[in-house]
Simulated assay, not measured.
Amino acid sequence: MTEGGKAKDSYHHGDLREALLIAAEEELKQKGVEGFTLRSCAKRAGVSHAAPAHHFRDADGLLTALAAVGFTRFTAAMTARQSAAPADPRERLIGLGLGYIDFATSEPALFRLMFASGRPDFDDPELQQVATNSLGLLIQGVNAVRGSEAPDDKAAMLDVAAAWSMVHGIADIALSGRMKFMDEPGLADDRDATYRNLIERILPRIR
């Protein structure tokens, strides 16, 4: 019981789920997927260990919901960069790539949960929808450069896969700390310009 005699998990409707998601993100940042438990999230949120069952069947269910939050932020980061780019298909595609890297480098725990963990359930309707939306941005961006309305042929899909692989690779290697050349004078001074240069090197391959 808490002060005033109220049960410590007596949240207003909807508040418990949000409190658990906030706690889960902090747990993920501090302990990673390997150390993530539902009990620890409940303790961090200040509720009983049984309280999360009102919203999540288990730890993987909570991580699935957290991954959906991640994809929503991921899409927002890409959209923000795309919207700030000049009204040119190539520039807007570069903007998407920079937004991709922005998210990865600012939200590494979520990024790894979304792309390097088997615990989120991608058959979950909410997660599936937001993940599909983020991929749709990339497909639209590549198609705009190609001058096509939809990826209706093998070449188009290969262009999408190439663009995705390239920018994801940059983001992943940057997070690993192995991109040591980024610390060299002239590159470390403007990482954004360096990331842009890397992205531009693949674009001529998209016809």
Rank of each mutant, 00 (worst) to 15 (best):
Y11V: 00
Y11R: 05
E18A: 14
L21E: 09
E25Y: 05
L28C: 11
L28M: 09
G32F: 08
V33L: 09
G35M: 10
L38F: 07
R39C: 02
S40W: 01
C41L: 06
C41H: 02
A42E: 07
K43E: 14
R44E: 14
A45D: 06
V47P: 00
V47T: 15
S48D: 14
S48T: 14
H49M: 06
H54W: 01
H55R: 05
H55C: 09
F56I: 01
A59K: 14
D60F: 02
T64A: 06
T64D: 11
L66N: 08
T72I: 07
F74I: 00
F74T: 01
T75I: 00
M78P: 02
M78V: 04
A84Y: 04
A85Q: 10
A85K: 09
A87N: 15
D88S: 05
P89K: 07
E91G: 06
L93Q: 10
Y100W: 11
Y100I: 01
I101D: 12
D102T: 01
A104D: 04
T105W: 11
E107T: 00
P108V: 03
P108W: 07
A109L: 13
L110F: 09
R112A: 14
R112D: 10
L113G: 10
M114R: 09
M114A: 13
F115C: 02
A116S: 04
D123K: 09
T132S: 13
T132C: 00
N133G: 06
S134G: 06
G136N: 11
L137V: 03
Q140D: 12
Q140I: 03
N143S: 14
P151D: 13
D152K: 13
D152N: 15
A155H: 04
A155R: 08
A156F: 12
V160Q: 06
V160W: 04
V160N: 04
A161I: 06
A161L: 10
A163C: 09
S165F: 02
M166V: 01
H168Q: 08
G169A: 10
I173N: 12
I173H: 10
A174V: 00
S176C: 01
G177N: 08
M179V: 04
M179R: 09
M182A: 11
D183I: 01
E184N: 13
P185W: 02
P185H: 07
L187D: 07
L187F: 11
D189K: 01
D190H: 08
D190S: 12
D190L: 06
R191G: 14
A193M: 03
T194E: 13
R196M: 03
N197Y: 11
L198Q: 00
L198S: 07
R201D: 03
R201T: 10
R201K: 13
P204N: 08
R207H: 11
